[in-house]
Design a protein around this nucleic acid. Structure first.
Lengths: 354, 354
DNA sequence: CTTGTCTGTGCAATCGTTAGCACAAAAAAT
DNA sequence: ATTTTTTGTGCTAACGATTGCACAGACAAG
C-alpha cells in the first residue's frame, strides 16, 4: 500500500516527515539506489537522470539523514568535545577555535561537558551512544573518564592543552619553555625574590610551568621561589594575591608568576586593592594570552599560546587516526610567544607592546 | 554464515566493533527483541532472563546505538545549540548553563556555531542532517538562518536572550524594565546628562534596553540621552569610551549606560585611561551581570540576568514542544536583579554590594 | 548473425534497534 | 479434562541510506 504512487502528494512537503531517498525515488520513477548514487555524484548514473534527481531533491528540500548513513557506513562525522571551566576565557577561546575549525573541515561537535570538575559517567557514555568518531579533550582535570572510555572502545582521543597521563595524543604549549622564559625575563629585569601561584595540583600545565619557572630561577642563582597554592579561577588568584599582600615585607616577593593569566589577573586585583603598585612594588606575569589580560586594567606580560595552531594540529592528529591510519601516539609541543606588557618591570631594552 | 554461534568468540570484546543487541542475543541464546526488551525493562520479560541479559550487557560493555534507535523511533535526543561570540563572557556562562541543564535532563547538545556573525548555511543544514529534536539559539544576530531552517522543517526553536522576529519561542530578560530601572537609578543619584552606548543595531536586547532607558530619562524631564554607537565587544565599548572622553566638557555626559556589561567595561577602561575618575567624574552602568564585571577594576553597577532560570525555562519550552504538544508560541520575560556597585554614584540610601 | 564489452539501473542485503503480531507453554477457569 | 486467559518469546518488518551483484539494453567486434 505504500507503493502506490497516486496516494502520494505532488507538493513540496512529504505527507509525514521529510523527504527521503525513497520518496524521491518514487517521484522520479527510479529506485532508491539510483537516487542515492545520483546525489553522491556516482559517475555511473547518466547525466540526465542525475540532473533530474538533483532538481527534485532541491525542490523537495531533501536533507540526507546522517544517522542512517552512519549506521551502514560506520562514520558519524561527530567529534566529542569535552571542555574545562569556561569561566576561564582561555577555554572559551579554545572552544570557538574548535567549533570553527571543525565546521571548516565538515565535522560537527557533540558538546558534552563544559565546566569545572570531571565529566560524569552518564555523560561520557554518550560518546559511545552517539558513536563519535573521535574526541577532543581540553579539560584540565588529569583524570578523565572520557579518555578512558574512548580508549577502551577504540575511539581516538586528542588532548589539547594538557598532556595525557597514559593514553592518547596531545597538543600542548611548551609549558616548560614558557615557565623558564618568564623566569629569565624576571631575573633579567633585576628581580630577586620570586613567587609562583600554582594552578590545580592535578593539571600538567600548572605543574610544568611552575616547575620550570622554579628550576630556571634557581639555575640563575636565586633562592627557590615561594610557592603559593592557587587554583583555576580568578577567585583563586585573588586569594593568592591577598596572601602575598599579607606577607611581612621581608618575605614579600618582588615578582609573581601566575601559571595562568586568569590567576595572575586575580592576584593583580588583590595586590592593587592592598595598596601595592604594579609593577612598581611587584611585577606580575602570567601565561595563556587571553583577551581580557591584554586590556588596560591588566596589560599582562604573558606568553601567548598559539591557540589556532594548537586546535588545528589537534584536529589533524585526530582526523588522521579517525581515517584509520595506525599511528603511534604523539605529543606535539608548540612554542608560545612572549608578549611584554606593563604588568612587569622589563629588562633593559625590552619594550612593552601597546 | 553469521548465524553460527560457534564462530563467535566468547571473550569480552566483539570480533569487530562493539556489542549489539544481536551479539548479546546470540550469547544469551535468545532473540534480539528479547534483549532489547530486557534492557529497556519491559515487564513482559521474565526477571531471570532480564537479569541474565543485564549481566551480559555489562560484561560485554554494551552501549546502545542511539543512532539506530533514532532511525526507528524518530527521536534523536539531540538539541542544536547556536551561540553568539564567546568573547563576551555572557555567552560563555550561558553555554555552561545550557550544557549542564541539558545533561541533567538527559539531552545532548550539537554545538553548531559559536562566534560573531551569522551561522553559515552548510552548518545550519547539519541541524536537519543530524535530526536534532529542537534548537536553542542565543546568537545575537537577529536574522538567523538556523531558525528559518528549523521552522521550515518542523523543528521547535527557542531563542534565549533575544526575541524572535517571526517564529519560535523566546526567553529573555525584561530588557525594557532593566533599561528603565537603570535610568531611574541614575536620575535618582542626581545625574542630568545621560548617554547610552548601543550594541549591535540588529539585536533586540540592545534596542529594547537603549529605548527604554532613553524613554525613562525623558519621562523624568531630562534631555534625550546622547546615543553613542557601540557594538558587541570590549573593543567597541573602549572606542565609545574614547569618543565620550573626547567630547567638549559642556557636552560630556555625567553618566553612561552600556547596554551590555562588556561594552560598559570597555568604556570604563577608555575613560579611566583618559584620566577620568569613575564614578567621580562619570558614572557607568551596564547590564548582564557577567562575572568579570563584578571584579575590583570594574565593580560594575548592573542588572544581572537570571541566567540559570532563563536557560531552564528555555529548555522547558523546547522540551514541551519536542514532546509533541501543540502549543502557541510563547515569549517569556524574566526580571533581572539590580546589583548596585561602585561604578556609579548611587541614590541616597542605596548601598553598594561587596 | 553471434559473441563480447560497456553503460546505466534495479534488487536485495546490511547497519542496530524497535514494535506489532503470532504463538507456544503454563496457569486459571469451566 | 477441556476451554479460556495469562505470560514470556520469537519472527518479521520497519527506519533511511549505502553497496555488491545481477541484469537489460546499446553498441562494437568477430
Amino acid at each position: 500500500m505504500d507503493d502506490e504512487p497516486q496516494a502520494r502528494g505532488t507538493g513540496r512537503a512529504e505527507p509525514n516527515g521529510r523527504a527521503t531517498v525513497g520518496s524521491l525515488a518514487r517521484r522520479a520513477g527510479v529506485s532508491a539506489s539510483t537516487v542515492s548514487r545520483a546525489l553522491r555524484n556516482d559517475p555511473r548514473i547518466s547525466p540526465e537522470v542525475r540532473a533530474r534527481i538533483a532538481a527534485l531533491a532541491v525542490e523537495a528540500g531533501y536533507t540526507p539523514n546522517v544517522l542512517a548513513r552512519t549506521l551502514v557506513g560506520g562514520r558519524s562525522g561527530l567529534i566529542g568535545l569535552v571542555l574545562g571551566p569556561v569561566e576561564n576565557p582561555f577555554y572559551a577561546e579554545l572552544m570557538q577555535q574548535a567549533v570553527s575549525q571543525a565546521a571548516a573541515r565538515g565535522w560537527r561537535l557533540l558538546l558534552l561537558h563544559a565546566g569545572p570538575g570531571p565529566i560524569e559517567d552518564a555523560t561520557a557514555e554518550a560518546l559511545l551512544q552517539y558513536r563519535v568518531d573521535g574526541c577532543l579533550i581540553t579539560s584540565a582535570e588529569l583524570s578523565s573518564r572520557a579518555a578512558a572510555i574512548c580508549a577502551a572502545n577504540g575511539v581516538p582521543v586528542v588532548m589539547v592543552n594538557r598532556v595525557a597521563r597514559e593514553h592518547g595524543c596531545a597538543v600542548s604549549c611548551d609549558n616548560r619553555a614558557a615557565g623558564a622564559e618568564l623566569a629569565r625575563l624576571l631575573v633579567a629585569a633585576g628581580h630577586r625574590k620570586l613567587a609562583v601561584i600554582t594552578g590545580n595540583a592535578a593539571t600538567s600545565t600548572s605543574i610544568e610551568r611552575a616547575e620550570s619557572f622554579a628550576a630556571q630561577a634557581m639555575a640563575a642563582g636565586l633562592p627557590a621561589p615561594t610557592i603559593i597554592t592557587g587554583g583555576a579561577s580568578h577567585a583563586a588568584g585573588y586569594a593568592a594575591g591577598q596572601a602575598i599582600a599579607a606577607l611581612p615585607l621581608a618575605e614579600r616577593p618582588d615578582a609573581v608568576f601566575g601559571v595562568s593569566d586568569i590567576l595572575a589577573m586575580g592576584a593583580m586585583d588583590a595586590l592593587r586593592e592592598a595598596g601595592l603598585s604594579i609593577p612598581g612594588d611587584i611585577s606580575i606575569v602570567g601565561t595563556d594570552g587571553i583577551g581580557p589580560a591584554s586590556r588596560p586594567p591588566y596589560r599582562m606580560t604573558t606568553i601567548a599560546q598559539p591557540l589556532a595552531a594548537m586546535v588545528g594540529r589537534g584536529m589533524d592528529l585526530l582526523l588522521a587516526r579517525i581515517g584509520g591510519a595506525v599511528l603511534p601516539q604523539e605529543v606535539v609541543l608548540l612554542r608560545g610567544t612572549l608578549i611584554p606588557r606593563h604588568s612587569a618591570r622589563l629588562p633593559p631594552g625590552m619594550v612593552p607592546v601597546s
